[in-house]
Design a protein around this nucleic acid. Structure first.
Lengths: 340, 340
DNA sequence: CTGAAAGCGCTTACAG
DNA sequence: CTGAAAGCGCTTACAG
């Protein structure tokens, strides 16, 4: 086989250049860069040195095309800019790099339809897919199934499908919230909800209600929210402005809880004296001195680490038995439920 | 040329399958998928229909290998989990997809050395590189220069090098902060700084000091910070706890300003009556009712849009003249400097 | 307009 | 242990 002709667009340093400089066949260069291959140790060292000098490194695309393993992991996420998603993405990305896997991103606007866009990742031949906090539509499940490679859902579930799932225990977190509030003497509970299509919000609510019922409480009052700060303010005005004010509120996320706390401050309602508040997420602002919000913490490093471990296994073994890992949420006890 | 044999690892649907099903040559299938190529319109339609049925789409890796354009854009960022970085990443990613470019992520831990890791992106043959708020070391500049393809710095500069730069006007923002505070009657200014290696912090400080001097003020007092909330609290205690308390503070970012405001609240110092505060970034929490922080807003959508436009140009033309775009920061006037 | 062929940069059986 | 060759899935001159 002969060395390649000049490239149309640009000239890269290739294995042929190294081979020529070393006076060996190109395939030997390839072997020098593949741990498993038989090469004379001194040959390998010599080739590696020449490669370094020439600035050569194997082209990952060509390798991927040939081996069927691109080491590319498709990651798709709506709202990278939410604190939880972005922290998860950071942890995940760092973990992937540590096992020589590379995140190819497919960010989606909230209005975007994932099932339509997902094919972009397929054309790049990603080895696996990680869906971060994305809504899982039937069309999406179908596309993933037809695709035939591993898919991991983060903080979402799609029961009855061959999709791996790694997630925070939202139900357990909801239970903890109710138990904690009741232990501290709460008499009338309320819940501020999130977007209707987020399956994890439902789980948080269900856990909260179940624990309340188990303690002999009537069903908590529910106020709608959409995860954003202003909806927490609105919920606060609704719950705290009129008669029948609850003495304990569990918000489906922290940001809304902060809005509700700001309303309480405005109305002169003392926290935790007159009102206890619990959030979910443990965002940075929850620990600010001005709030000190008790909340349920996602263990995102665990979620990320488990995801990376699973992906590394899949690279080795091709397939793995279906994973459904639930990471428990931890209650972070702060002043919004707890006087110093 | 004959159709390929069975693949070692898995069988994809290829252009050959479509060609066989349609009774044409594989090259015709390729042309059907390339807008610029001559194919009989009816042939194209027929092929597209068959492709759809078979679930065929051209493999982006093979295409990239051949054309020298992968449509992959390397994006590297330290701390995706900071609100500004993650919002920038979200905007950027969305913009890239809209021009059929794909973000390959290289996240870095704060201790990570970018110059060492950057080669990973080179092996994937990315068409260009975008560095988000990364420290630009000489080694990094050298690696990028040797690589020879376009590099865009976001919110950083590296004067004297062939690296494009698109950034917020930090200096101008610093000036605006000082002017705004002085207009509102501030008598003694202070500045809470950020990490020493962030070039944008220096620019904010320089602008702030320059405008103070231009107004005949003595140089503001400086307190060190590191961008994190606790350092804002410490700065607050330092500045507000002792004698010679300033009546106006400009913080290098919002998070520290919030820490300082929480200290003021604790000490019973009224904002803006006794103390005016200005931040930088306009993070979500700055607009919370409990803070209502006046701040300088990055126009991240503009930064992202300009970046995408530049990358799209580069795809078309190969090279472009060096871009150094400065996007002005906008003062967002809230209650921390302004009674209702 | 379509077909046959070369080639992108690599990996991996297959000989020797 | 090394060389020669085939092939991953595509694009693009080159003929006809």
């Amino acid at each position: 086989m002969s060395p390649p002709k000049d490239h149309r667009f640009r000239r890269r340093v290739t294995a042929w250049d190294v081979a020529r400089a070393a006076g060996v066949n190109q395939s030997v260069v390839s072997r020098a860069f593949n741990a498993g291959s038989r090469v004379a140790p001194e040959t390998r060292e010599r080739l590696l040195a020449i490669a370094k000098e020439l600035g050569y490194a194997p082209n990952a695309l060509a390798r991927g095309l040939l081996t069927g393993r691109t080491r590319l992991i498709g990651i798709t996420t709506v709202q990278i800019n939410s604190e939880i998603s972005s922290r998860l993405l950071q942890n995940l990305g760092l973990g992937l790099l540590s096992v020589d896997l590379h995140p190819l991103l497919l960010p989606l606007s909230p209005q975007g339809v994932l099932a339509d866009e997902i094919h972009r990742l397929f054309t790049f031949d990603v080895d696996a897919l990680v869906l971060v906090s994305a809504a899982i539509s039937p069309a999406l499940v179908e596309a993933c199934t037809a695709w035939g490679r591993p898919v991991i859902l983060l903080n979402r579930v799609a029961p009855g499908h061959r999709l791996h799932s790694i997630r925070t225990d939202d139900y357990g977190g909801g239970r903890l919230a109710a138990q904690h509030l009741l232990e501290r003497g709460a008499q009338s509970l309320a819940f501020v909800s999130g977007p209707a299509d987020a399956t994890n919000v439902q789980a948080r609510r269900d856990g909260f209600f179940a624990a309340a019922e188990a303690a002999g409480q009537p069903p908590p009052r529910i106020v709608a929210g959409d995860f954003a700060y202003p909806s927490g303010v609105v919920a606060g005005r609704t719950l705290l402005g009129g008669p029948g004010r609850p003495d304990a509120v569990f918000c489906a996320n922290d940001v809304m809880a902060l809005g509700l706390m700001d309303v309480a401050r405005e109305l002169g309602i003392r926290i935790p004296g007159d009102l206890q508040v619990v959030g979910f997420d443990d965002i940075t602002a929850a620990s600010f001195a001005g709030y000190s919000l008790t909340t349920l913490r996602h263990d995102l490093d665990i979620v990320a680490a488990e995801t990376v471990a699973l992906l590394a296994d899949l690279q080795r073994d091709g397939e793995a038995s279906l994973v459904d890992r639930v990471v428990s949420a931890r209650l972070i006890d702060r002043r919004s439920t707890h006087d110093l």
